[in-house]
Amino acid sequence: NSASGPLPDGWEQAMTQDGEIYYINHKNKTTSWLDPRLDPRFAMNQR
Rank of each mutant, 00 (worst) to 15 (best):
1 N>R: 05
2 S>P: 04
2 S>E: 13
2 S>H: 13
2 S>N: 15
2 S>V: 07
5 G>C: 08
5 G>P: 04
5 G>I: 11
6 P>A: 13
8 P>Y: 05
8 P>N: 09
8 P>E: 07
9 D>G: 09
9 D>F: 08
10 G>N: 11
10 G>M: 07
10 G>Y: 07
11 W>Y: 06
11 W>E: 02
12 E>N: 06
13 Q>S: 10
13 Q>K: 09
13 Q>M: 07
14 A>W: 03
14 A>H: 08
15 M>L: 13
15 M>C: 14
16 T>E: 02
16 T>C: 04
17 Q>A: 13
17 Q>F: 07
17 Q>E: 11
17 Q>G: 12
18 D>A: 12
18 D>I: 08
19 G>S: 05
20 E>K: 06
20 E>Y: 03
20 E>Q: 05
20 E>M: 05
20 E>S: 06
21 I>K: 11
21 I>P: 11
21 I>A: 11
21 I>E: 08
21 I>F: 06
21 I>W: 07
22 Y>G: 01
22 Y>F: 07
22 Y>S: 00
22 Y>E: 02
23 Y>I: 00
23 Y>M: 00
24 I>H: 04
24 I>R: 05
25 N>M: 02
25 N>A: 02
25 N>Q: 03
26 H>T: 06
26 H>R: 12
26 H>P: 09
26 H>C: 05
27 K>R: 11
28 N>H: 07
28 N>P: 01
28 N>A: 14
29 K>I: 01
29 K>S: 11
30 T>M: 15
31 T>P: 00
31 T>Q: 01
31 T>R: 01
31 T>C: 04
32 S>P: 01
32 S>A: 07
34 L>H: 12
35 D>V: 03
35 D>S: 04
35 D>Y: 04
35 D>E: 04
35 D>T: 03
36 P>A: 00
36 P>W: 00
36 P>Y: 00
36 P>G: 00
36 P>S: 00
37 R>E: 02
37 R>H: 03
37 R>V: 03
38 L>R: 13
39 D>A: 13
39 D>S: 11
39 D>R: 08
39 D>T: 12
40 P>I: 14
40 P>Y: 11
41 R>E: 14
41 R>M: 15
42 F>W: 11
43 A>P: 14
43 A>R: 12
44 M>T: 13
44 M>F: 13
45 N>K: 06
45 N>P: 06
45 N>Y: 06
46 Q>D: 15
47 R>I: 14
47 R>T: 10
